[in-house]
Design a protein around this nucleic acid. Structure first.
Length: 287
DNA sequence: AAGAGGCCCTGATAGC
DNA sequence: TGCTATCAGGGCCTCT
């Protein structure tokens, strides 16, 4: 489910609402995620102050006062909901209340000392929780990640050098987390449309102009998605349960058989499969 | 050794 | 209504 924009929105919401709160209790309802929920999770979290919340690629990171970190990956369908503990009255619209909270798949509940509770919900169980030491940057899974798309190390020289002697196509390159961290299927499709690049195009055929297009449009599309509150296709929800709106601006994703929205283009969006993932593009203006 | 494909899991929807 | 098949925002593992 969540790609960089959705995790970034989640990070900001958590920083607004739970930064410097103390964890009083952890309840594990179901240990079955991609990896089993660590047995010592409760022990590690209890009494900890959440000093900061950051994001690397699609990973969410809670920095604890013990200097350990809680790494959270949301997989395809993970969401974190902020719930007010006692919401009998004085209902605050910016949080979930018991009436719109999902009933199934609430794997983990973390109670805080400010009357709020975090609920991790994940129907498909591809997400996971992991405790890491303060050297987490140099440990898997983070150590193999490419630069953040917004960082200065994601630049022309880096891309130009990275694609040398490689054979894959441009869509798989964008989706490759060791090339750049955070782009998934939706945004890879959208970025390539804005670059007017065919997703099948081999990276060995990219010219200088193409590389600059990739740089510019990657940042443009992701920044816009964050501004629109992320994309809700099926089940992405913000921490308050509301949907994102970026999906209304999709140019190609999910738009097969629809008319291309490019100025003066009369092409029709086509759907194909690349490495098992749905791929959408306009055959006419993406070459 | 890079790259393609299978697979983990549940739920929604389409088609018969 | 009720079955079965297909498809989902990811990424690890295996095989070539």
């Amino acid at each position: 489910m969540p790609e960089l924009p959705e995790v970034e929105i989640l990070k900001k919401s958590l920083n607004r609402n739970i930064k410097f709160t103390k964890i009083t209790k952890t309840k594990i309802n179901n240990v079955n995620l991609r990896y089993k929920v660590p047995k010592h999770l409760n022990k590690v979290l209890k009494g900890q102050i959440i000093e900061n919340i950051s994001r690397i690629s699609k990973y969410l990171i809670l920095h604890l006062s013990s200097k350990k970190i809680l790494l959270i990956h949301l997989g395809m369908s993970g969401t974190i909901h902020i719930v007010r503990n006692n919401n009998n009255r004085n209902t605050n619209a910016s949080f979930y209340n018991s009436s719109n909270l999902p009933e199934k798949h609430n794997h983990i509940e973390i109670t805080l000392n400010n009357n709020l509770k975090l609920i991790y919900n994940d129907p498909r169980r591809f997400g996971y929780f992991k405790i890491l030491s303060n050297k987490f940057i140099h440990q898997p899974p983070l150590k193999n990640l490419g630069p953040d798309p917004f960082s200065s190390s994601f630049n022309f020289k880096y891309i130009d050098n990275y694609i040398k002697n490689k054979k894959k196509n441009i869509k798989n390159l964008l989706m490759d987390q060791s090339f750049v961290g955070g782009i998934g299927n939706i945004y890879a499709n959208e970025i390539l449309f804005h670059c007017q690049l065919n997703p099948h195009k081999k990276i060995s055929e990219l010219n200088k102009k193409n590389i600059f297009q990739i740089l510019r449009n990657t940042r443009k599309v992701l920044r816009k998605a964050i501004f629109f509150g992320g994309s809700t296709i099926k089940d992405f929800r913000r921490t308050d349960g509301k949907s994102g709106n970026f999906q209304q601006t999709f140019k190609v994703y999910g738009r097969h058989n629809a008319k291309c929205s490019s100025y003066k283009c009369n092409g029709v969006i086509k759907k194909t499969i690349i490495t098992n993932r749905s791929t959408f593009f306009c055959p006419k203006c993406q070459n």
